[in-house]
Every structure is written in C-alpha cells, then in structure tokens.
Design a protein around this nucleic acid. Structure first.
Lengths: 193, 193
DNA sequence: CCTACCGATCGGTAGG
DNA sequence: CCTACCGATCGGTAGG
C-alpha cells in the first residue's frame, strides 16, 4: 500500500536539502524543488517562507546540532585524550550521517543575509574554540604535542568536515567505523602518546 | 605614475576568480565582474568566451598545476616518509598561496558541463591515487601504520585543501610555515615513526 | 569600448 | 493545490 503523502514543511525542506547539497543554493531553482515534489512552484509557499528561509532552517538546525553533540559527549572529568576522541568522533560521525547538511552549511552559509550569517558563524566559532580549548589543555598536561592548538583545531575540524565529501552508505566502511578511524587520526595529529 | 591598464583576458580572469571564490560561480553575475573592472557587461566578451569558459580556465589551470607540482617534487628514490612529506608540503603550500583557485575548484567544479567536468575529476582522482600509492608503499615498507591507505589519502588531501578556508597572508604563519606544519600532520596521520 | 536589446528564467504574489 | 502574472535580472548578441 503506497502512502499518498501530502506536502508538508518537512518534505519541502528535505527536497531542498538534497538539491542544495547537489547544486548549491544559488544553483538550485525553486522550480526544481517543486518538480521533485510534483507540484507547481507557487504551491511550495504553503509550506515555506522563502528560499532564503529554507537555507536558514538547514544551517540553523545543523550548527545547533553540532554544539549540542559536543556538549553532550564532553565529560570534563575525562583526560584530554578521551575528550578529544569523543568530541571528534561525534563530529566525524555527524558528517557521515548528515552529509547533505554539512555540504550546504560549508558551501552556502555565506549566502545567508545578516543577522543570520553572523549568528551562524558565531556558532561555528564557538565549536572551534571549544575544541581548541581541549587541545590546549592536553598540551598543558603534557599529553599532546603541537606547536599551535589553533592550527591543530582547524586541521582536525576540517578533517572531519571533509568526510561529507566522499562518504557513502554503500562504501566499505560504516559511519561508526569512519568516525573511529578519524578520531584516531585526530589523536595522532596532536601527538597523543 | 598610475598605469592606465586596458582590459585583457588575464585581468578578466583574475576578477572572475576573486568573485567566484567569494560568492560562488552561480552566485556571481557577469555584471559584477564588469563592475569591478569598470566596464559594461558586453565589453567583457572581447576578452572571454563565456562565463562557463572562465570557470573552465580556472579549474583547468589549477588541477593541472596540482599534478605538475606532485610529479616535480616526487623522487622515487626517496623513502616513503620523505615522499609523503614533499608531496603534502607542496600541496598544502599551493592551498595557502592559491586560495581563490582552491575554493573555486572545490565548490564549483560540479557546475562545469561535460566533458570538462569528467576530465577535471579524472585529474583529481589521479592525484588522489598517486598519493595513496605513496602511503601504500610506506605501509608495505613498515614505515607507516594505517588500516586503510585510501582513507588516509582522503584525509590528508582534504586536510591540505582546507587551508584555503582559513589561511590569510596577514595571519601569524606564512604559507611555508603552514605547509611545514601540515606535512608534519600528514606524517603523524600515517603513523610515521 | 559602447547602447540597445534579446529570450529565458528567477523568486515571489494575486486571487481563487 | 492551481493558473496567471509580476518586476527584476540573468547570460549573451547585434551592430556600430
């Protein structure tokens, strides 16, 4: 029995997500989203505010999720190496399981308008600083060995982000396996023993 | 004495490069390029084929340069660790010194049309396989320790690519310093002793 | 190098 | 959910 689902905001957002990830925000026309959903373009406006609002919802949800993940897995009582492992594993895992979101955030956040663009960048900066602090504590404790925690933090974050560029559900490795391997890479980058 | 330079193909390409890197290919109008150069849009056509051709020239030149770099610095007589260091250092260095090109290639190659898009992807694959082969030889020699050379190759390449996202000529580190640090990260990722 | 102009398409609205 | 339509802008051409 085929479910004859009607249009709703979630379905429109999901179609937008797929197309924005594939062609980019400016490379996607609302008419393409409508075609995917087999309706005419004006019908979309019953389920969304505007094209810009679709992008904002995607970026907002994703950047908030990254911070939620981080604070959920971080235990201040853990040693720095375990903190870094857990923080990078959940970040890497997200980029394997939420590929489309990651591609859109990285490619098209700059297409938002103020004040949204500033707010979203602030969230990414918050995550970057939080990860950097973990690395700095590891260096102070003598567990990590890097010249610049900032450089290592940039490197590790972008390393995880890049998973979205090649990961496939049909590939040899599961999201969990990739996340484990990449958190291992992160520990190697900081020179953890 | 101000040089009153006339328009030429290189100047148009450079202006396109700056704007494509900032706003993306689909997010940039030819009228914006013209405005930058203080001419009307139709005048651009005396110095270029089409908007698509501008993108193709950027991607073509850059992907060819990456392969040239690789083969220029790779010495088959070097031990794997030195091969990996040199290959990643030149790749990282390029992403610090050619930021705009890197951003455009990574963001907008998919906006090319066939057969160009396939040809450009083939070049990136060639670089990926060449770097993977270096890693595989290091693993066979017992110098590197990774479960999957393919995964390590992806990781290291994307690590270098990400430099284009944050590097600044005004920052604390020079392109050479960043390249040295990042090639060190690469050696750590593969577990070189 | 310009003005004048082309058809196509864009995001979005009116009104039912 | 639709048809009909809006002004704006797109890449590109004609012709000088």
């Amino acid at each position: 029995m085929v479910t004859r689902a009607g249009l709703n905001p979630d379905v429109v957002l999901d179609a937008a997500l797929t197309l924005f990830a594939r062609r980019g925000y400016h490379g996607t026309a609302l008419s393409e989203i409508a075609e995917t959903l087999q309706v005419r373009t004006p019908s979309l406006y019953n389920h969304m505010g505007s094209k810009h609002d679709l992008l904002l919802r995607i970026v907002d949800r994703t950047t908030a999720g990254v911070l939620d993940d981080f604070h959920r897995v971080l235990d201040p009582d853990d040693p720095p190496a375990e903190q870094l492992r857990r923080a990078t594993r959940v970040y890497a895992h997200r980029h394997a399981t939420h590929r489309r979101e990651a591609l859109v955030v990285n490619r098209d956040t700059s297409s938002l308008s103020e004040p949204a663009i500033g707010e979203m960048q602030a969230r990414r900066r918050e995550h970057e600083h939080a990860l950097r602090a973990v690395i700095a504590r590891g260096v102070e404790a003598g567990d990590f060995h890097v010249e610049s925690p900032a450089l290592a933090s940039f490197a590790i974050r972008e390393l995880c982000v890049s998973i979205a560029r090649w990961f496939s559900d049909d590939g040899a490795l599961t999201a969990e396996e990739v996340a484990d391997q990449y958190s291992g890479f992160a520990l190697r980058i900081v020179g953890a023993s």
